[in-house]
Write a protein that binds this DNA or RNA. Structure first.
Lengths: 251, 251
DNA sequence: CTGTCGATAATTGTCAACAATATTTTGGAA
DNA sequence: TTCCAAAATATTGTTGACAATTATCGACAG
């Protein structure tokens, strides 16, 4: 299992094997549709499925050996998470967030993550809880140094999600999970590989401020981090995935 | 259309006709499943479907004259929004948020709504935009005075959603929509009808502080408003919807 | 009377076929 | 050749049926 061949927009070749663990919680009993959901979700986040690619139902249910009913259920859920766009009678496409959505997502993240930092700083044992995050930042550095872009994006998201998880609020955790996955799509569309600076460095700084209990500095660092990320997006010469698909989406 | 007979836990009689407009945005082309989604969603928010009630697929597709595939798709989406709980091979139940979830939802709301007030206060033409909200508060008062509990809850939610909408951020709006609907479920479960004080009064105060541009007071009023609402919840003698259902949910 | 086991009934999970819609190809005329 | 129309193909939307699982009821032993 798990070594299917994804539909590729152009001739990008066979994708590498998907990673074992997902960003999302695996608390549910996980039926057939949940498996498909996670499979496609991961593929989009890892950019094995580029934004704008059409997800033909027949291809999917062939790739995963399941019926179209299952595929449709999974796609419906993904649409609800804004990971795919479901056009009536046309089919499902990996979502292509526009400039407005980019602005909204990052603004929401700045708001929510600032509030979360505030709460975290009121925890008495915060430095202890931060241990695992230091570990995570080290992994980020490794992924960055060996140019492993997929792992880097995945770990970068995981950092923010794990940070929220420390607040022990399920609602906020799921919320951040959703925002992070949408951010991944945005990065896939608008970020230039060359420009993706050392964000693990900024993560490290945030951790330092947090463990020192410096509220002001932590807030500022997080705000700057998110703002930097947003401003790395280039909307002019966008990362067009596939002229054929673009044409048929009337853009 | 729209005058179906909902499955009722005990002998609560026939439900009243559902209201015309929904809380949720109706931007999508609205397929068959979207209709079902909204129908069930509204019924839950309006408490015509009480928490814990089982939603049998056959009953639903009989009530709305559609196939089970449609019903399953709608239920899957509702599960994703935490409006219904989908137990594998057991069926769908209207969600019953527990104490922890209640805490988390209200904490998330305090965080997000505080941040939103901050943003709103930076808008130059805020007082103009607040016009429609004054109108809304008046409606709340009317609903409260004629003891129309359903309209009151609906309008109370709408107030918060509309307030967020002024910030012109789609992501935040949808987020608040989700949080408000979950709040409705919580109120249905844990609030005593008698105790639901004059919250429209608190809404009015928030508006006053906002139109005066008094950041400190507005923040405090919103915080207090949400905290009051949360503390009106009584977890001891909970509003048990149906012993039969409760039993089979292993509680 | 209570609790356990087994058969029956009801409900969900999955699938395959059909109808509706959209896309591609084909054919012909300017 | 280029453009337009219409048949042909492909894909999605919907439905109904069947298999798998679970809930209900009744018989029976303790």
């Amino acid at each position: 299992m798990n070594n299917h061949q994804w539909p590729v927009p152009e001739g990008e070749g066979v994708i590498s094997a998907p990673p074992a663990s997902s960003l999302r919680d695996e608390n549910q009993p996980a039926g057939e549709v949940e498996r498909l959901y996670l499979e496609i979700f991961d593929a989009v986040i890892d950019q094995r499925l580029r934004p704008g690619v059409k997800l033909t139902e027949a291809v999917l249910c062939d790739a995963f050996a399941c019926s179209r009913g299952t595929v449709r259920a999974a796609l419906a859920q993904l649409q609800h998470d804004k990971i795919v766009e479901l056009q009536p009678n046309r089919g499902a496409f990996v979502a292509q967030p526009d400039i407005k959505e980019t602005r909204d997502v990052f603004e929401a993240r700045r708001m929510v993550e600032a509030a979360i930092l505030d709460k975290l700083l009121s925890l008495p044992d915060l430095p202890d809880r931060l241990q695992q995050l230091w570990q995570m930042v080290r992994q980020e550095r490794v992924a960055f140094e060996r140019q492993d872009r997929v792992s880097w994006i995945r770990l970068s998201n995981a950092f923010h999600v794990q940070l929220v998880r420390l607040a022990e609020n399920e609602v906020l955790t799921e919320l951040m999970n959703s925002l992070c996955s949408r951010t991944s799509l945005i990065i896939a569309l608008y970020d230039k590989p060359g420009c993706s600076a050392c964000s693990f460095d900024e993560h490290e700084q945030i951790l330092q401020h947090l463990s020192r209990g410096d509220r002001q500095a932590a807030q500022q660092a997080m705000r700057q981090h998110l703002q930097d990320c947003e401003q790395r997006m280039h909307f002019a010469d966008r990362n067009v995935p596939d002229p054929w698909t673009m044409f048929h989406r009337q853009l």
